[in-house]
Each structure stands twice: as structure tokens, then as C-alpha cells.
């Protein structure tokens, strides 16, 4: 187990390094730069600016400094476009916001998706089952960027129940719509997957064995069926988290939460390489670590996998 964790880490770390190096070169070699504006700066000023940002040195030296600063002091350097802020400050102000509603969104996905899938499987062809099928199709058709405007239309503009955007220090009213808007389609995906695997498990021979023992239905589901039925859901959560991060960029922009997604998009417009690079690294580290945790969790839960490691 420990061995496996180390091996997975040994894969994740070079991956991150490769991504950093690749992104760094891509950003520096791309045409134009943060300081190319309509009116070209006088060469002397330009040289000055470049020196200030350490961009007059050879690329590999810049890369080295960049990585060194991240590793030793967790310093992603200054922002190129927001003169008075560093990338660290941008991350520090936006990341907690995104993480907060992202967390609640994940809670929503699991707390609603798993029971819904289980109930739909247990009450095959019942109201809950149809509700779930409906929801699955609905979420496929109404992705977050269609759902979010509709929600604002209803809950803010028509009924005035919830604020249509902003953050306000993370009061719950401001979290509801971002969390639901981000999670709905994945909630439906989790429900559908859980239903499918639950149905399969309930038809498996070992559940028949459990029935033959005279166990009550409740015990059969909780003790025997739930764990194997949830394993595929766990695998599915990896890609879901990756997709949710993309979704969070949308949510940040649409609801003006002040999360890092907005900075990421702004960074693209202003060609703010240091912000783009910093946030891209944060996103990658986040997804890779979530995937790592999920893999370890899976290995820990499934005795067969655990032994194979």
C-alpha cells in the first residue's frame, strides 16, 4: 500500500514538472507578450520592464528561478498586468472562494446523487427511477451554462429568493446557486452510474447467497451491496472532479464570485502569463492530488486491488 502510494507520487511529481516546463516555454515563446500594446513602449522602458520581471535573462534561467521560487517559498512571482498584486495574492483571495463552493458542490453531488441512484435501483421502475432518468437526460441537455442563467431567472429575477451573484464573505445564500449550478449534471451522472452498478450488484450471485442466509433486506443492502455498488462511482469521481474544475471557471465568471476562475479568464485576455501559469499549476496539482487520493481510497476499499499492490 505504502509502496503503491509512493509509486503513484513518483508518477505525479514528474507529471507536474513536465507540465510546468511545457507551459512555461509555451508562454514565453508565444507571439506577443503582456507588454505588447498598441503603442510600443520605447526600447529603454521596455528593457527596464523586462529587467524588473527578470525577463531579460535566458529562458532556462528564468524557468529555474521560477521553479525554485515555487518550491522554496511557494512564490509564483508578480502579476504582469495587475501591477500591485502578486500571483500569490490573487490565489490567496480567489482560491478559498472556489474551494468553498466547490466543496459544497461535491457534497451535493454525493449526498444527492448516491441515494437517488440507490433508491432508483431498489425501486426499479418506480417514481424515483423515472425521476432519475428524467434528471439524467435533463442534465445532459441543460449543462451548467444553460442551467445557471435559468436559475438566476427564476430564483433571483422572478422570485427574488437568492442573490444572482457575488460572494459576500461566503454567506450561504451566495453559495447555493454556484454549488448547485456546478454540481447538477455530475449529480445526475453519479446517480445514473450508482443505479446501474447497484442493479448489477443486486443481481450478482453473492447477493443471492446473502438472501439465502435469511438476512433482512436492509442488511443485505447496507452490509453487502452498497460497497461494491459504490466502487464504480468512486472511479467516476476522478473525471468528475476534473470536469468540475472547468465548470468552476464558468461559475466564477457567471456568478462573479471572485474565485480564481475569473482571474484565469482575465489572465487570458491581458496575456498575464504569470497568473495563467500560476493558476494552471494550481489546477493541475489539485486534479492530480484528487485523483491520487481517489486511487488510494479505491485500493484501500477493494481488498483485491489492495492485495495486488
Amino acid at each position: 500500500m505504502l509502496n503503491y502510494s509512493l509509486r503513484r507520487l513518483a508518477f505525479a511529481i514528474p507529471t507536474i514538472f513536465a507540465l510546468v516546463i511545457f507551459a512555461f516555454y509555451l508562454m514565453r515563446l508565444a507571439p506577443g507578450g503582456p507588454f505588447t500594446s498598441e503603442k510600443p513602449l520605447p526600447p529603454a522602458v521596455m528593457a527596464n520592464v523586462l529587467e524588473r520581471y527578470g525577463m531579460d535573462e535566458p529562458l532556462y534561467v528564468q524557468l529555474f528561478t521560477y521553479i525554485k521560487n515555487i518550491l522554496c517559498c511557494f512564490d509564483f512571482g508578480p502579476s504582469f498586468s495587475q501591477k500591485d498584486r502578486s500571483v500569490n495574492q490573487i490565489i490567496a483571495s480567489g482560491f478559498p472562494v472556489t474551494l468553498t463552493y466547490g466543496f459544497w458542490s461535491a457534497v451535493f453531488v454525493l449526498i444527492c446523487g448516491i441515494p437517488l441512484g440507490v433508491i432508483a435501483a431498489l425501486r426499479h421502475n418506480s417514481f424515483w427511477d423515472y425521476l432519475m432518468t428524467g434528471l439524467a437526460i435533463f442534465s445532459q441537455i441543460f449543462p451548467n451554462f444553460v442551467l445557471a442563467p435559468i436559475m438566476v431567472l427564476l430564483f433571483t429575477l422572478s422570485w427574488g429568493l437568492l442573490p444572482g451573484g457575488g460572494w459576500n464573505g461566503g454567506q450561504w445564500q451566495y453559495i447555493v446557486m454556484p454549488a448547485i449550478g456546478l454540481g447538477t449534471s455530475y449529480m445526475a451522472g453519479v446517480a445514473r452510474l450508482t443505479r446501474g452498478s447497484m442493479l448489477e450488484v443486486l443481481n450478482s450471485p453473492f447477493i443471492r447467497t446473502a438472501r439465502a442466509k435469511g438476512l433482512p433486506e436492509r442488511t443485505i443492502i447496507w452490509r453487502h451491496a452498497l460497497k461494491p455498488a459504490l466502487l464504480p462511482t468512486l472511479t467516476y469521481m476522478g473525471p468528475v472532479f476534473v470536469y468540475m474544475i472547468t465548470g468552476s471557471v464558468f461559475i466564477d465568471v457567471f456568478f462573479s464570485t471572485g474565485g480564481i476562475g475569473q482571474d484565469f479568464i482575465d489572465g487570458a485576455y491581458s496575456r498575464d502569463y504569470s497568473v495563467l501559469l500560476g493558476l494552471a499549476i494550481i489546477y493541475c496539482v489539485l486534479t492530480l492530488s484528487i485523483n491520487l487520493v481517489l486511487d488510494l481510497l479505491y485500493a484501500w476499499i477493494d481488498p483485491k486491488v489492495r492485495d495486488a499492490l
Partner: peptide
């Protein structure tokens, strides 16, 4: 493991 939005944002920036 890489959120696809990164590709679009980075590409559009350059």
C-alpha cells in the same frame, strides 16, 4: 487529469 479549460485559455492567450 488536466481540466480542458486550461488548453482553451492558454491557447486563446497566445
Amino acid at each position: 487529469a488536466v481540466p480542458y479549460i486550461i488548453f482553451f485559455v492558454v491557447w486563446q492567450a497566445f
